[in-house]
Amino acid sequence: MTQVTFTQADGSQVSVEANNGEHLMKLALDNGVEGITGACGGSCMCATCHVTVDSVTGELAGPGEMEAEILDMEVDEPQETSRLCCQVFVSSDIDSINVTVQEG
């Protein structure tokens, strides 16, 4: 199990335990996290699940080509830690991960 914490725009947090293989966009939707839309259903085609990764305990793989392109082109001010959370998967390599929801 991995502890995933979302910080929403108003500063409040949603913290959930996640199983291996789940992606953060689905977790966000399932737990009513504000500001995550996921318009394309996790197909890495839109930018409505933008987060910044504040901290990770463990190993998190970096963004793939498509995700990097979307962050570069679709997000107004991408940060170094920007991710599309439909592409951030929980795994046994990650004990906990904290992210902040960003504007699409």
Partner: peptide
């Protein structure tokens, strides 16, 4: 979500369903 049905869900034994909005 309908797009995943023909792209991946139908080939997955678990038949995952991606909800548009959370339950």
């Amino acid at each position: 979500h309908r797009p995943p049905l023909s792209k991946k869900a139908v080939f997955d034994e678990a038949l995952p369903i991606e909800l548009l909005q959370a339950n």
